[in-house]
C-alpha cells in the first residue's frame, strides 16, 4: 500500500524521486505565504531528536529541496497534509 496525495496545482508543485535510501522532494510555491507552512513542517522535524529524518534546503531559484529518509516518508506527507499543503490523502 502506498500513500498517494493530491495538491492544488495552481498554488504549488510537488515532485518526488527515489535516491538510494532517500526520497527527494522538490516543492515550488506560486504563493509565497505557503512557504511559511513548509517552515512549520521543517520546525516539526527539527524538534525531534532524529537529525536525518528530513533535511530541508532552499535553492537559489526559490525551490525547496527536502531529502526524506524512506522510513519517514509517511510522516513527512502527513505533516504536509496537516499544514494544508496537500488536499487529499489515500492509501492505494
Amino acid at each position: 500500500m502506498k500513500l498517494n496525495y493530491e495538491f492544488n496545482k495552481e498554488l504549488l508543485s510537488i515532485t518526488e524521486k527515489v535516491n538510494e535510501e532517500d526520497i527527494e522532494f522538490s516543492i515550488v510555491f506560486k504563493n509565497v505565504k505557503l512557504a511559511e507552512k513548509l517552515e512549520k513542517v521543517h520546525q516539526y522535524f527539527d524538534l525531534n531528536e532524529i537529525h536525518t529524518d528530513a533535511l530541508f534546503f532552499t535553492n537559489k531559484d526559490g525551490s525547496n529541496q527536502i531529502i526524506v529518509k524512506k522510513d519517514f516518508y509517511e510522516d513527512f506527507i502527513l505533516q504536509l497534509f496537516k499544514q494544508q499543503l496537500l488536499e487529499r490523502l489515500k492509501w492505494e
Binding site: E20, L55, F57, I67
Partner: peptide, 13 residues
C-alpha cells in the same frame, strides 16, 4: 556541527 554535517554529506551522498 554534527547535524550540519549530516545535511551536507547527505546532499553529496
Amino acid at each position: 556541527m554534527v547535524p550540519v554535517t549530516f545535511s551536507i554529506t547527505r546532499q553529496l551522498k
